[in-house]
Simulated assay, not measured.
Amino acid sequence: MTRVVLSIGSNVGDRLTRLQSVVDALGDSVRAVSPIYETDAWGGVEQGPFLNAVLIADDPDRDCHDWLRWGQELEQAADRVRGQRWGPRTLDVDIVTCHDGDTEVRSATAELTLPHPYAHLRAFVLMPWLVADPAATLTVADTTRPISLWLEDLDPAERSGVRLTDLTLHTEPAAD
């Protein structure tokens, strides 16, 4: 069985609907959903704020490369254009970590780097992840630490750019 931590974000169009589309596509695979945060754009490109969340899912029939392809398919369905690095996005689905049973999967290929190489530097990943899984750990350069400690290491300005919203993602179909 693979268990995956996904960071999802959108800052173009109906941001909430784009995030909800990922939860809906995951269906019964969803194990945890973070609250939604609004986040100042990261990476130095002038653009509007993102809505961000973290999802935890598992699926015995998917490996990490399957998760990657699935995330890219969702991005394409949302008309994601990969033009400018760290530019505006209709939908961004990033694999933060992937576990095969109790083993954290490591990958360093051109197609997939796991764990995500910048996750420990991004409050918009760490803050929602910590809420979704308070016991979570992240490995960086062969050092595994609790998410809470990686978050404490960030500049307070990085953390203050990530604001909790009152928006929610629903794991159950809406009642008619």
Rank of each mutant, 00 (worst) to 15 (best):
66 D>F: 13
79 D>L: 04
97 T>H: 00
59 D>V: 00
90 T>F: 08
123 A>H: 05
63 D>M: 12
116 H>F: 02
104 E>K: 08
128 P>N: 10
54 V>W: 07
135 A>E: 15
95 I>W: 11
137 T>Q: 13
114 L>W: 04
78 A>E: 13
106 R>I: 10
128 P>D: 10
142 D>Q: 14
48 G>H: 10
123 A>T: 06
125 V>E: 03
110 A>E: 15
107 S>D: 11
120 H>E: 06
49 P>H: 05
134 P>V: 12
70 W>L: 03
110 A>L: 11
136 A>H: 14
51 L>H: 14
102 D>S: 11
54 V>P: 11
57 A>M: 09
57 A>G: 10
125 V>N: 02
92 D>E: 09
123 A>K: 02
122 R>S: 05
131 V>A: 07
109 T>L: 04
107 S>E: 12
75 E>Q: 04
54 V>Q: 09
143 T>H: 05
116 H>K: 03
62 R>V: 14
117 P>R: 03
112 L>M: 05
79 D>M: 01
93 V>G: 07
101 G>A: 11
125 V>K: 06
120 H>L: 06
126 L>M: 09
73 E>N: 10
59 D>G: 01
66 D>T: 15
134 P>M: 11
97 T>V: 11
138 L>C: 10
66 D>I: 13
120 H>A: 11
48 G>V: 06
86 W>S: 02
122 R>H: 02
59 D>Q: 04
109 T>M: 04
94 D>R: 15
126 L>E: 08
92 D>A: 08
137 T>P: 07
112 L>Y: 05
100 D>V: 05
79 D>N: 09
96 V>D: 04
57 A>H: 09
48 G>R: 10
135 A>H: 11
127 M>H: 00
60 P>Y: 00
73 E>Q: 12
61 D>Y: 01
92 D>F: 05
78 A>S: 15
58 D>T: 10
123 A>D: 02
130 L>C: 08
132 A>I: 14
52 N>C: 13
106 R>K: 12
72 Q>H: 14
87 G>L: 10
54 V>R: 08
63 D>S: 14
104 E>L: 15
122 R>A: 05
70 W>A: 04
